[in-house]
């Protein structure tokens, strides 16, 4: 491919990065269309509009590509959550902003979300392990709430795991029933659900009533 005149030719790294992203997007789209089990490398190659060799330059197998998609989706989600949360000073406001950014990400990248949140659970032990690590990252973020909670360490040990599990179940369900586009409407109730154990129902409701989306979008 010739670079356009008057521009620096694209670096090999840039092209490689771009190709990977394109292949990952193709895998996610094919996964949504036919379910992960049925997807073949040929489907991915066709959807991405690349040569079969290019696929194998980047990934060793369909499974390898799926793991890269999971990795990309999870890393990107956490990056957005962290960026949105960083705009606020208090932990409850950070949760509100972080969850808003997460739901926004899920709603605007439905294929990637389905791949990472629904299909990952059936894509073999390595994918399940990657999913588990994402859950664990969110668990750690919620654990910070114990510092602002009057009950602190008296809260049940497994509280964060159940909160994060509950949030992911709601998102999973909305993806499965095809309502992921409206997922952002659930923000206030999910924020309330997540914050109530730490700061009480009234304070949680107040935080949930603030709309952080304008800055997080």
């Amino acid at each position: 491919m010739r670079p356009p005149p008057g521009r620096q030719p694209l670096s090999k790294e840039f092209i490689a990065q771009h190709q990977r992203a394109r292949i990952i997007a193709a895998l996610a789209e094919e996964t949504v269309t036919q379910g992960y089990r049925a997807v073949t490398v040929a489907d991915i190659v066709r959807r991405a509009g690349i040569a079969r060799n290019t696929f194998y330059d980047n990934f060793s197998s369909k499974e390898d590509c799926f793991l890269a998609a999971s990795e990309f989706g999870a890393t990107e989600a956490l990056r957005r959550v962290a960026a949105a949360a960083a705009e606020f000073d208090t932990w409850p406001a950070r949760v509100n902003a972080g969850l808003a950014a997460f739901l926004h990400h899920v709603a605007t990248e439905p294929a990637l979300a389905r791949t990472c949140i629904v299909e990952a659970l059936s894509a073999g032990p390595a994918a399940v392990e990657r999913y588990e690590r994402s859950i664990q990252s969110f668990v750690q973020l919620f654990r910070l709430g114990r510092k602002v909670s009057p009950q602190g360490e008296e809260l049940p040990d497994t509280l964060e795991e159940t909160i994060v599990g509950g949030l992911f179940w709601i998102i999973y369900q909305r993806i499965v029933i095809g309502q992921v586009g409206q997922i952002e409407e659930l923000l206030p109730e999910l924020v309330e659900f997540s914050l109530t154990p730490y700061i009480g129902a009234e304070a949680a409701k107040r935080v949930a009533a603030e709309q952080p989306r304008t800055t997080a979008g």
């Binding site: 795991e161 599990g165 509950g166 992911f168 709601i170 109730e189």
Partner: peptide
């Protein structure tokens, strides 16, 4: 007033996930 339409789903999902 504190309960939302998704409260029960979130509770069951959280429990099953754990």
């Amino acid at each position: 007033a504190r309960l939302s339409p998704t409260t029960e789903e979130a509770l069951v999902g959280g429990m099953m996930s754990l």
